[in-house]
C-alpha cells in the first residue's frame, strides 16, 4: 500500500515536471530592461557600416592634419610614414601581393571598403587611449593612411561622402563562406 502511494506520487511528480519543462524553457512574459532613446545611445553608437558608410559622422580632415596626429600619437608603434614600427608592420602597399606566396595585408590592400579604417581607428586607436579621438581627427588619420597608400590625393579632404566613395583595390576580393569545401572520404583499409 505504502509502495503504491509512492508510485502514484512519483508518477504525478513526473507528469508535473514534464509540463513544467515546457513552461520553463520558453521566453518568459516579462521585461526587466529600461527603455532608452536612440539619442541617449549616441556615445556608444560608433559603428560604421560598409559598403554604405552608414554611421559615418559629420566632420572632415586632411592628410596633412592626419600626418601631424600620426607623428604625435601613432608613430611609436607604427613607424614613420606608417612604414612599420616597434610594434606593428607596414600599413602601406601590398596591393597585388595576394597572388604571391607572401600576402601583405594593409588598409590599402585588404579593406574592401574605405570606411572600415575609420570604424577601426574610431573604436580602437590609439591603443593606449582608444575612443579619445574626435571625428575630425579620425577623418584626418584616415586621409593620411589612404594618401600614403595612394588611394586619395595628398590634399584630399575626407568626410562621410568622399570616404565612402573611395574605390578600394580589394573590393571584389571576398567570397562568402561556402564550406564545407574539402570532401574527405572515410577510408578504413589500404588508404592513400
Amino acid at each position: 500500500m505504502q509502495l503504491h502511494k509512492i508510485a502514484i506520487a512519483g508518477g504525478l511528480a513526473f507528469a508535473l515536471s514534464l509540463g513544467g519543462a515546457l513552461a520553463n524553457s520558453s521566453k518568459p512574459a516579462v521585461s526587466f530592461g529600461t527603455p532608452i532613446t536612440e539619442a541617449d545611445v549616441a556615445a556608444w553608437d560608433i559603428d560604421v557600416q560598409t559598403p554604405t558608410g552608414k554611421g559615418l559622422p559629420a566632420g572632415s580632415g586632411t592628410a596633412a592634419q592626419g600626418k601631424e596626429l600620426f607623428d604625435a600619437q601613432c608613430v611609436a608603434c607604427h613607424g614613420a610614414d606608417a612604414g612599420g614600427g616597434s610594434q606593428y608592420g607596414s600599413m602601406v602597399g601590398g596591393v597585388g601581393s595576394f597572388v604571391t606566396e607572401k600576402r601583405r595585408l594593409t588598409p590599402g590592400s585588404m579593406y574592401p571598403y574605405a570606411p572600415i579604417l575609420f570604424d577601426y581607428i574610431k573604436r580602437a586607436m590609439p591603443m593606449t587611449a582608444p575612443q579619445s579621438l574626435s571625428n575630425d581627427e579620425v577623418y584626418a588619420l584616415t586621409a593620411y593612411i589612404y594618401a600614403l597608400n595612394e588611394l586619395v590625393a595628398e590634399d584630399a579632404v575626407l568626410d562621410a561622402a568622399s570616404l565612402a566613395a573611395i574605390e578600394m583595390p580589394n573590393r571584389d576580393g571576398f567570397i562568402v563562406d561556402d564550406r564545407p569545401d574539402a570532401a574527405a572520404v572515410r577510408c578504413m583499409d589500404d588508404c592513400e
Partner: peptide
C-alpha cells in the same frame, strides 16, 4: 539589415583562398 564588414571580418578572421581571394564570414568551426 546588412552585415558591417568590420576590420575583424575583412582584414582579420578571413581565410586566404586561391587566386588572391579571401573567404569571409566562415564562422562555423568544422
Amino acid at each position: 539589415d546588412q552585415p558591417w564588414h568590420l576590420r575583424s571580418e575583412t582584414a582579420r578572421y578571413t581565410d586566404p583562398m586561391p587566386e588572391g581571394k579571401w573567404r569571409q564570414f566562415s564562422m562555423e568551426m568544422e
